[in-house]
């Protein structure tokens, strides 16, 4: 009798398919829609230069400006969906770039510390670690009520550990576990790449999320 896939394999397949689809949409937005709009934008500029009526010139210029804003939106959306640096430069540069966006979006400063030499990871591992860090940081923005957070990357010869810490509000772990699927999803994602996820939190003292990925 054929072996049926187990729960972990199915979860892994669903997450991977979702990530592949996100990446495909991001690429399509950036390379497809974005490029087409850019062609329209340059065409609109050409028309703007050729038109002599002032009223029409102004109208074409407004349309070109709107197109420019849309192109920028599409590019940013594509980067948000799947940062290209995650594939080209690796986890740490992608995270540094995300932290800049995070601070300018939520007003929370994140102090990043790294030690050891970055080890190239598989794409699946990079995406998972990036998404779990994003989720932990999103939780800080939503619930921690703090202006600062800390993130530490420690690269060892046999493992990578990432610690995300805030000195914010903290929460009741049992309650949080039942109210949010985000915590369980972070743990599940880490398990699927052979890693570990730990959370410690105390009301009034803050929260620490620890990620551990062994290099097998």
């Amino acid at each position: 009798m054929e072996r049926q896939p187990d729960k972990n394999e199915i979860s892994s397949y669903i997450i991977q398919s979702q990530e592949e689809e996100i990446k495909r949409i991001a690429l399509e937005l950036h390379e497809g829609v974005g490029q087409t709009l850019y062609s329209l934008y340059t065409g609109m500029q050409f028309i703007g230069n050729a038109v002599e009526q002032d009223e029409m010139k102004g109208y074409v210029s407004d349309m070109a400006e709107l197109l420019e804003k849309t192109i920028q939106e599409i590019r940013l959306l594509a980067v948000e969906l799947h940062p290209p640096t995650l594939t080209t430069l690796g986890l740490l540069p992608a995270m540094k770039s995300y932290l800049k966006l995070y601070t300018s979006t939520y007003g929370i400063e994140v102090e990043l510390e790294t030690s050891g030499k970055e080890v190239p990871l598989e794409e699946r591992q990079r995406i998972t670690l990036f998404r779990v860090c994003q989720e932990a940081l999103a939780n800080i923005a939503r619930y921690a009520d703090t202006v600062k957070a800390e993130m530490t990357f420690t690269w060892q010869f046999d493992h990578l550990s990432i610690i995300i810490k805030d000195k914010g509000r903290g929460f009741d772990k049992d309650k949080g576990w039942h109210q949010s699927t985000g915590l369980a999803a972070m743990r599940e994602r880490m398990h699927l790449i052979g890693g570990e996820w730990h959370l410690s939190t105390k009301i009034g003292e803050g929260t620490v999320v620890e990620l551990y990925l062994p290099f097998i």
């Binding site: 804003k69 300018s104 939520y106 007003g107 929370i108 202006v147």
Partner: peptide, 12 residues
């Protein structure tokens, strides 16, 4: 707090 000073939102 002073978070508002650091927040930038995109058009739309």
């Amino acid at each position: 707090n002073d978070k508002y000073k650091k927040i930038t939102v995109r058009y739309g």
